[in-house]
Amino acid sequence: MIESTPRIITGIFAFTGAGYGSPVGLAGLEAYRVPADKRSQLVYLRAGNSAAEMVSLVLLRDGKPMRLFPLGAKSGQHVPLAVVEDLFPETVLEMRIAAPEGVTGTLVLDMGLMEI
């Protein structure tokens, strides 16, 4: 049997949009690096958006967009991932947010990964 370890990334983050084409980092949210001796899989994402405009979460894998998670205005979403892909050792994941320029809000994030 393969042992797995859950990794949960959570937080509440204020943001100011720079345009849908210019995703910005979330202050206080650190990048996640897959341990050198493990693989990892993103298994779910829950997020809420307090802004009066739609935003999109942009998950970067090694600096390149891997997944987009659009969030409606003043709404939340639970995304159970039906397509789960392996993230290899030393892969770096970062979460950014794309919102219309000047739009401010708060993002509530709960993201689950499984290290195997």
Score class of each variant (00 low, 15 high):
A51K: 00
M111H: 01
I97R: 00
L93I: 08
A14I: 05
I97L: 08
F88Q: 10
I12P: 02
N49Q: 07
V24E: 02
Q41T: 07
R67T: 03
D62I: 05
D37G: 04
R46W: 13
Y32Q: 12
E53Q: 15
V108K: 09
G25H: 08
A36H: 12
L59M: 12
L29E: 01
I8K: 05
S50G: 04
L29A: 04
V103R: 05
A36S: 15
L107V: 05
P23D: 09
G25W: 02
I12M: 11
V58W: 02
E90S: 07
P35R: 11
M111D: 00
P35D: 15
N49V: 05
D62Y: 06
G28R: 03
T91E: 07
L113M: 14
L71I: 12
L26P: 04
E30T: 08
P65F: 00
A27W: 03
R96S: 03
G25A: 15
P70V: 02
L87D: 00
P80C: 07
T91W: 01
T104M: 14
V103A: 06
F88T: 06
R96F: 01
R46Y: 14
R7F: 10
P100I: 02
G102R: 06
M1K: 06
D86G: 04
A27Y: 05
T104Y: 07
A73L: 11
T106H: 11
R33C: 10
G76W: 09
A51G: 06
